[in-house]
Simulated assay, not measured.
Amino acid sequence: MTLQNFTTWLYATPFASTIRDVPWIIPAIQSIHILAITIVVGSALVSDLRLAGVFATDAMPNVVIRRYLRWMWIALVVLLITGGLMATGEPDRVLTNTTFWLKMSLIVAACLLTWFFRRPLLHPGFHLEHARWRPFVKPAAWLSLAVWVCVIFCGRWIAYTI
């Protein structure tokens, strides 16, 4: 099955029709999606700025990471669900859009950065100042923020690109 065949089939499903036809569904899903992105990016912002040594420098990095990482992952799940629902409503506009796939690639990259640079900090005995990869933490934090900003821009551009 080609992507075009899949989007045609998905568009014709009763579930996709309901998403498109009930006037309040898309605005409600978009609102939840936007709230979830603010939680994800807000959590990334606080965590990454701490790892970059710019914000909350009086707190241990592992404390800041532990406080925000859980919210980040929960909101990311909400983002994936709401994004999937929006894509289901208009699969031909979304799933065939290169900006959408760029956004998905950037989300994977941001999640990998988050996973690899924050996960060790969750272990009670871990001390960032003794880590061999400590010189890479600040650049990775700034890169993570840049990637999340690009995700937001791509999300907006999906509506304006084909």
Rank of each mutant, 00 (worst) to 15 (best):
I25S: 05
S144K: 08
H130K: 08
R67E: 10
R119H: 06
L3S: 02
W73Q: 01
T82Y: 07
H123A: 15
L106M: 12
V149F: 10
L49M: 14
I34S: 14
T18S: 11
T13N: 06
I25D: 03
L112D: 01
A140H: 09
F126E: 02
W157P: 08
W73S: 01
L10E: 04
A159M: 09
R156V: 15
P124C: 11
M1W: 05
R20K: 11
R132K: 09
I19P: 01
V94D: 00
R156I: 15
V41W: 14
W73L: 03
G42W: 15
I65L: 09
T13I: 14
L69H: 10
A75N: 00
D21L: 14
I37Y: 07
P27I: 15
L128G: 03
A110M: 04
F6P: 00
G42H: 15
D21A: 12
Y68L: 09
A75Q: 04
A28Y: 12
P27F: 13
S105V: 07
R93S: 06
T8H: 05
F100P: 00
D58S: 10
V151C: 05
I65S: 01
M104K: 10
R66E: 04
P135E: 07
R66I: 10
N5F: 09
V151S: 00
I152S: 08
R20I: 13
T38D: 12
K138S: 06
W133R: 01
A109F: 12
S31M: 14
L106D: 03
Q4T: 03
L102V: 11
T88Q: 08
L85Y: 08
T114P: 01
T7R: 05
L121V: 13
F15E: 07
H130G: 04
S31Y: 15
C150Y: 13
I74Q: 02
I65T: 06
D48F: 12
M72D: 03
P14F: 11
F153W: 12
C111Y: 13
A44V: 10
R66L: 11
R156L: 12
W142S: 05
R50C: 07
P124Q: 09
R132E: 02
L128E: 01
I74E: 03
N5P: 00
L102D: 01
G53Q: 07
D21V: 15
I81M: 03
T57D: 00
F100A: 02
A131L: 07
F116R: 08
A87N: 00
W101F: 14
R156S: 08
W24D: 07
R66M: 13
I81V: 05
V149M: 11
I74P: 01
R132W: 10
L69D: 02
M60W: 09
R156T: 13
I29C: 00
I32H: 08
K103S: 06
F153Q: 10
T99G: 07
R93K: 10
C111K: 05
A140F: 14
A87G: 02
L102S: 07
G83S: 01
A56Q: 11
R50F: 13
D48R: 12
T96F: 10
I107R: 02
D92A: 13
L51D: 00
T114E: 00
P23W: 15
V64H: 08
P120S: 02
V41A: 15
R119Q: 07
P27Q: 13
F116Y: 14
R70F: 14
D48L: 12
A140Y: 10
T82A: 02
V64T: 09
V40T: 06
W73E: 01
F6A: 01
R119N: 02
